[in-house]
């Protein structure tokens, strides 16, 4: 598979993933490679200025400990807990650019994690079951939420199949709240 990120940048991203990846005792699915591949693919779609900017941001993250903290080790060679502390410093930084860079780096890594079936099942996001339910795949279709359906029926939502456009009054000043 073609790689968009250079080997050096991949190494930094891999070190970043180790910190950013959510894990807790008893739940730590092995999705690091998926996350890395997503980051690589995602980067390939970036506009030109971000293609330049993101590696610069990652290098800043990598060499930041040497420059700002007097550390002897770059980010990717720090111990995991030190990397975590260092990244948290960026999240809480008074410098908006640092915080924005962390957001960008999270965007590079987390979507693949939370799109993993095991993770989605863990947080209770069973989209496939919902799609089967509302579309009646292998069973009669059901409302998206029986409770909400009963509530909105009571409110008359099924009595008026084409609710008229709310009209001008909805946008005029001085309209009285219901």
């Amino acid at each position: 598979m073609a790689q968009n990120l250079s080997p050096r940048v991949r190494r930094i991203v891999r070190a970043l993933i180790e910190v950013v990846k959510p894990r807790k005792p008893g739940f730590d699915p092995p999705v690091e490679e998926e996350m890395l591949e997503f980051a690589d693919t995602f980067y390939g779609y970036f506009p030109w200025h971000m293609k330049v900017g993101l590696p610069l941001g990652l290098y800043l993250l990598e060499f930041g400990p040497l420059i700002f903290q007097g550390s002897l080790l770059p980010f990717s060679r720090m111990k995991l807990e030190n990397r975590d502390r260092y990244l948290q410093g960026w999240v809480d930084s008074k410098i908006g650019l640092r915080r924005d860079l962390v957001k960008g780096m999270k965007a590079l890594c987390l979507p693949a994690y939370y799109s993993n079936p095991e993770v989605m099942a863990h947080i209770g996001f069973d989209l496939e079951a919902h799609l089967r339910k509302v579309n009646g795949v292998g069973q009669p279709s059901e409302p998206a939420s029986a409770e909400a359906c009963a509530f909105f029926r009571k409110q008359g939502y099924d009595q008026n199949p084409r609710i008229p456009y709310p009209g001008r009054d909805a946008f005029k000043p001085g309209r009285q709240a219901r």
């Binding site: 910190v19 950013v20 959510p22 999240v91 962390v102 999270k106 965007a107 987390l110 947080i123 209770g124």
Partner: peptide, 25 residues
């Protein structure tokens, strides 16, 4: 919003992100 996108909008990462996202429903 898909949980992957919701998680991006929250400041947490790592274990704290997961603990928060466990409340997804």
């Amino acid at each position: 919003v898909h949980p992957a996108l919701a998680a991006l909008g929250l400041p947490q990462y790592g274990r704290r992100s997961l603990e928060l996202m466990e409340q997804w429903n």
